[in-house]
Design a protein around this nucleic acid. Sequence first.
DNA 1: GAGGATAGATTGACAACGCAAGTATTGCCA
DNA 2: TGGCAATACTTGCGTTGTCAATCTATCCTC
Lengths: 147, 147
Amino acid sequence: MRALTRLLRAKAATTRLLNVGLQAEHGLSLNDYEALYLLSQAEGRRLKRVELSRRLLLTPSGVTRLLEGLEAAGFVERTVCPSDLRVAYAQLTEAGAEKLAVASCGHVGSIRELFETHFTDEELDELSELLGRLPGVALGDDSCPAA
Amino acid sequence: MRALTRLLRAKAATTRLLNVGLQAEHGLSLNDYEALYLLSQAEGRRLKRVELSRRLLLTPSGVTRLLEGLEAAGFVERTVCPSDLRVAYAQLTEAGAEKLAVASCGHVGSIRELFETHFTDEELDELSELLGRLPGVALGDDSCPAA
DNA sequence: GAGGATAGATTGACAACGCAAGTATTGCCA
DNA sequence: TGGCAATACTTGCGTTGTCAATCTATCCTC
């Protein structure tokens, strides 16, 4: 119960902090960044929208809205799947990859700063292990190259 | 970094789960509930709006919007502070207290179910201790009577 | 005490996201 | 092969919460 309220507040606090940084420096939301990152790690730099929805824990409509912005900015393109005309891939563009690279510098810096001043490495592992047990959290796991 | 993405997803997953339950059964959002709860624990069952904003980690305008709904439903009233005409207290009404009591039954049940199937008591303590270190998370601490 | 800085609160415009409903495509099964 | 369920996605609408601007009340300083 206390754990719950802290979980809620922890999310609110951290997203606010990181969001303003990303927004101010690169005009990206935290979800924008996550989406670009997931795409960059994916095979062929593309992902089905359903897959993004699962990984980002957004509803399909949320993904559509998110990608609208990213497409308008030229960071992703929609491509179709020849074998199944229902699916629309989100394909990372060269511009998107560059944007991600640039934004990563400052962003992972902020994250490290935020977390490493409060936790040791072991505690971070502990924390993510615990959070990973909640239903749906540890889905498309991300092998985390940059940090 | 993995910790961060899991934190974000953990919040998204849990709020969605708990929100739909609360919403369906009692027409309250999670923040509505938290606000009622904080008021019920406060001295005289009232709190300054600024205080609510700190505790719920909402902006002041967020608090105003939240209380709009609660006032319309008759669960809180606004009262003024005689010594400082700027502050407007949010005062829990009798109806609000009853609503909270009724909603608590099912709600803390859901929470326990969600958390206790995945964690032991020690792990919950560990988790909330860790989360509490993030800036701003462990503010108005809540001495947690019900669970 | 007058004047400016500051704190508490509200309002309007806006972005993000969920839900429900709708469309299009595919797979299943008789 | 025809029909029906399921899947992938989009769109309209409502809710929630933020930000920037504003108003009032209080405090602080001269």
